[in-house]
Design a protein around this nucleic acid. Sequence first.
DNA 1: TAGTCTACTGATTCATCAGTCAGTAAGAAG
DNA 2: CTTCTTACTGACTGATGAATCAGTAGACTA
Lengths: 221, 221
Amino acid sequence: MNLMRHRGLRFAAMARSTHTRISAVERRAQIIAATRKVALARGLHDLRVADVAAELDVSTGLIHYHFATKHELLEAMLRDTAAEELNAVMAAINERDDPTAQLEFMIDAYLPSPRGDQSWALWIDVWGETLRDPEVRRISEELDDGWVDVFAQVIAAGVESGAFQSEDPVAAAWRLCSLLDGLGLQVVLHSRTMSRAQMSAHVRRAAELELGYQLVGNARA
Amino acid sequence: MNLMRHRGLRFAAMARSTHTRISAVERRAQIIAATRKVALARGLHDLRVADVAAELDVSTGLIHYHFATKHELLEAMLRDTAAEELNAVMAAINERDDPTAQLEFMIDAYLPSPRGDQSWALWIDVWGETLRDPEVRRISEELDDGWVDVFAQVIAAGVESGAFQSEDPVAAAWRLCSLLDGLGLQVVLHSRTMSRAQMSAHVRRAAELELGYQLVGNARA
DNA sequence: TAGTCTACTGATTCATCAGTCAGTAAGAAG
DNA sequence: CTTCTTACTGACTGATGAATCAGTAGACTA
């Protein structure tokens, strides 16, 4: 037994003949991307360090070489994912200058994609983690605040231009955002009960009541 | 080693001298109650079968005698908890006959209690489970549908009596309920960002817009 | 009063995985 | 060329916790 172990150790590192050595920063980014992929596919909860290693065809030891604990790895992945999501919406918003079109876009971006939105599923899992982990709380808080900020800016711009009516754009943004969270939950968890199209209709009706403006409903299924 | 095991087994059942034997149905109810208590205190996710056993001062074997798997135990507990919650609201609603008072009560009942609402935390964990488990999905679906039903009935009664205005009480109920879910999430997860009082104000404002009626806001902290 | 049933014990087994560590090699530095 | 650093391997450890099972005792039955 001891002999086998010794032999194993002696020749261990020779096994993977074609291993590519890359810089630490690059590898970290690779690992984070692989972690996100696995988390989306299997769920945050069922993600194992071994899965991430397998995804990159490296050893589990390498993951722990770059990230001391699984916890640290997940935090890094969530931070990265949240930042990327926010950047994506903000970039898309900046490409449009009509508040109505901006709001349209944001609502569409928020709606879960038809068959089991993996990103939504990830963030629902994150809500559970948020209950237990202060650092995860900070990340999800920043993401939520980010979305509300963008909504509030779009609404404020619409009020400015006369497209919308609102006494308190920030409060209206919180209500819209929270409604989107609650409805999205139904679509993702109980798709039988509420479809994406129904959700879209509900949000448009709420926006109409809240902003005194009828959005052009492209309520595609 | 083998000797020790034999001795252990021989005298095992003598250890707990004062053990109370009760009927299977009664014991199941006890175990479910203990499971709920532990789940609320530690979180669904951190609940161990050993904790439930310790809560009742019985062996882990007993838990598995009544519930084949931990899974089965959790499902039974959630089914029971959901049913009890719904019964409680419906009973409270039936005690009032004024739709306005009924709506007031329901909103208050939905608001998370100030310092870390354990029941809210439990259901947020359940949302994560719902992603993975069809039976849990059925349970949470029934609970959500139940709440919406009650809201819809109250709104419909209010429309009847002229207290509220709504073209589609069921749709309005879905919007209110989803808004409550989304806002409650913020209060529970990011209490710094949104307080219970703010949530209450948001809901009242939304109800006002949705039902064309100003609720008497007892917006206590 | 023996025999059976039902509730129950707790030591033990078994699987799972995060995290460790001794050892290895490519490439940079001197 | 030699030494040092940095990235990397993979067998292993250690902890955890669900589930099992041989055995036990009170209560009901015949």
